[in-house]
């Protein structure tokens, strides 16, 4: 059975995902054939693809704000016409060290398919960068294969770059012959917070999605009395809303697959032969996404309550992130505990 791991965006909240991944890999011994990362998920999934869980844990429990972003005088950035409030120099350095050329070569030789989501500011399209030899195709997003290590690192940085807060990245600047080297890319979460739809387009049967937004919504007790607090709250709403929208379509798709499977079972019970059933459901349109596709098992693991980490997870506090990581492990245990018996073969 092929499995996919989908990690959503959320900055420091990614520590929650690291807790989930740690137990999925080390306790349940799961291997993922497809990994889709958005934003902080794009930082996590390459390491997860190569099984470097300890490195992931180290990164997501030790880095602080100073190692991720460089802060400036907010007004100066606006007056000087800069492209973002913060810059990414410290994170760039971490990415260069962690995802060095040797790492990239291993990733390209790996049998795990990695998809990193970005959005192009010029075309407004969702652009997915991948090492997959036979990547998925869709009308909804464009797929580009990794060409070199610099482009890979730029794609990871772009996926993590929340527009306005951090600068857009020219992902294809290092790609010889690219017609649009100047195109700027930002966080894939602008269009696709959790890449479940991308994972569903591959040939996997089971998808593990980790979200960082809380399952239980608790109204804020405070008033929003200044521009910054309103902006911060808006970012959180934006992330939560995109998360719900992202899950809606894959769940509807899966509901349709389940419905088709039920109809086929009913037909079989009524004495229709397997060969006839297949004839009824086989069309000449080979691109039909419902054809010959069994229902997917989609697991959604998310925190019960808000994780903290500031708006969009822009606050990297190692102590808080250690709690998030522990929270991720607990959330997975709770999720597994409520699974119907025999519904999965790994727990």
């Amino acid at each position: 059975m092929k499995r996919a791991l989908v990690i959503s965006g959320g900055g420091s909240k990614g520590a929650f995902s690291v807790g989930v991944i740690k137990d999925l890999v080390q306790t349940y011994h799961l291997k993922f054939d497809v990994l889709v990362g958005t934003s902080t998920g794009a930082l996590i999934t390459p390491l997860a693809a190569l099984g470097m869980i300890d490195k992931l844990e180290e990164l997501y429990t030790t880095v602080d704000n100073n190692q991720i972003i460089k802060k400036y005088n907010f007004g100066q950035r606006v007056i000087d016409g800069k492209v973002s409030i913060f810059s990414f120099e410290p994170l760039k350095s971490i990415i260069s060290k962690t995802y060095n050329d040797a790492f990239f070569n291993n990733l390209m030789m790996s049998d795990r398919d990695l998809y990193i989501t970005t959005v192009c500011l010029q075309t407004q399209k969702l652009v997915v960068f991948t090492n997959a030899k036979n990547p998925v195709m869709s009308n909804y997003y464009q797929v580009q294969k990794f060409v070199n290590a610099d482009q890979f690192r730029a794609a990871v940085l772009a996926s993590a770059s929340q527009p306005v807060f951090t600068p857009p990245v020219k992902v294809n600047e290092s790609v010889a012959g690219d017609a649009h080297k100047d195109y700027q890319f930002v966080d894939g979460g602008v269009r696709e917070y959790a890449g479940v739809a991308i994972a569903a387009d591959t040939d996997v049967s089971e998808i593990f999605t980790v979200l960082h937004s809380a399952r239980k919504f608790k109204p804020a007790a405070n008033q929003f009395t200044d521009i910054f607090s309103v902006l911060q709250q808006t970012i959180d709403m934006f992330i939560t809303d995109v998360s719900e929208n992202d899950l809606l379509l894959p769940f509807q798709y899966n509901a349709a697959l389940k419905y088709i499977q039920s109809v086929k079972n009913n037909m079989k019970d009524l004495g229709v032969s397997e060969a006839d059933i297949n004839k009824y459901f086989t069309l000449s349109d080979l691109t039909n996404r419902f054809q010959n596709r069994p229902p997917l098992k989609i697991h959604v693991i998310q925190p019960e309550n808000p994780l903290g980490g500031g708006p969009g997870g822009l606050d990297f506090n190692p102590t808080e992130m250690m709690d998030m990581l522990a929270n991720g492990r607990l959330a997975l245990q709770s999720y597994v505990a409520q699974l119907p018996p025999d519904s999965v073969d790994w727990a």
């Binding site: 802060k71 400036y72 005088n73 907010f74 007004g75 950035r77 409030i85 913060f86 807060f165 910054f228 902006l231 911060q232 500031g310 708006p311 822009l314 606050d315």
Partner: peptide, 9 residues
């Protein structure tokens, strides 16, 4: 400063 967006003065 603002809590998350840098300083202003």
């Amino acid at each position: 400063d603002t809590k998350y967006m840098g300083s202003y003065a």
